[in-house]
Nucleic acid binder design. Structure first.
Lengths: 115, 115
DNA sequence: GACACCTGCTAACTTCTGTTGGCATGTGCA
DNA sequence: TGCACATGCCAACAGAAGTTAGCAGGTGTC
């Protein structure tokens, strides 16, 4: 994800909804400093693994983080996560453009319809 | 709001949560083109006034739009809304900075605590 | 007075999201 | 074998968010 390209409306909503959560913000912040595996991250952030998993899944679904399964020296499976570098800029104009590509709920937008 | 300044974590969450909604995206988009009063906007977007009010309130609470009460020529009270120009840029690094100012749920962040 | 337009509020329902706790699986080591 | 660490999944609850429908108040015009 490079996001220099204009995001589609639906993508935008997904990314914003994903980021609009304190836990997930902290997760991204932590991973921005250094990648980590699930259990470690959970301890670091002071939240349960189950909860962390849910949030990581959402972040991954939005393309903001990626998982990489690795084996530690002693043979344990560790699931490392890392942030996907992204740049997202929001302004009313950018939103106006993105909004045109929103799916679902048609109507409106036909020139000369209302009022 | 100019947002060239680094947003606090809580503000960030509020703004993102506000923007993470198709209706509100469309509202911002519509207002970015031209300001409008509630009833007109509702017709334009094809949603109920009650629903629009709720969303407008949230947008206003996040500082993304502002209301201005005016009297039309024929003496009717019209509540005009317009977008507040803003520029918000998001990257993992910016999020990492903002996350430090998140209130609530302390713990973690003490160096040398975990693992 | 009836109608058309504007405004706002609230109660109630439905749907989505966050969160917890438990269960199951695997590895390595004393 | 039992403990410590890693992984994952799922059911269930609680709370937040979205949505609708209805009520009430205002102005101006036919």
């Amino acid at each position: 994800m490079s996001a220099a390209s204009p995001p589609t409306g639906d993508d935008l909503v997904r990314v914003l909804a994903t980021l609009a959560n304190p836990h997930r913000l902290r997760i991204v912040a932590a991973l921005a400093r250094e990648r980590a595996y699930v259990s470690r991250l959970a301890r670091q952030l002071g939240i349960s693994r189950a909860l962390l998993q849910v949030h990581l899944r959402k972040l991954a679904a939005a393309g903001l983080v990626t998982a990489r399964l690795e084996l530690s020296e002693d043979g344990k499976a560790m699931n490392y996560y890392e942030v996907e570098p992204f740049v997202l800029t929001l302004t009313p104009e950018i939103i106006a453009t993105a909004a045109e590509t929103l799916t679902g709920h048609d109507s409106a937008e036909q020139p000369g319809a209302e009022r």
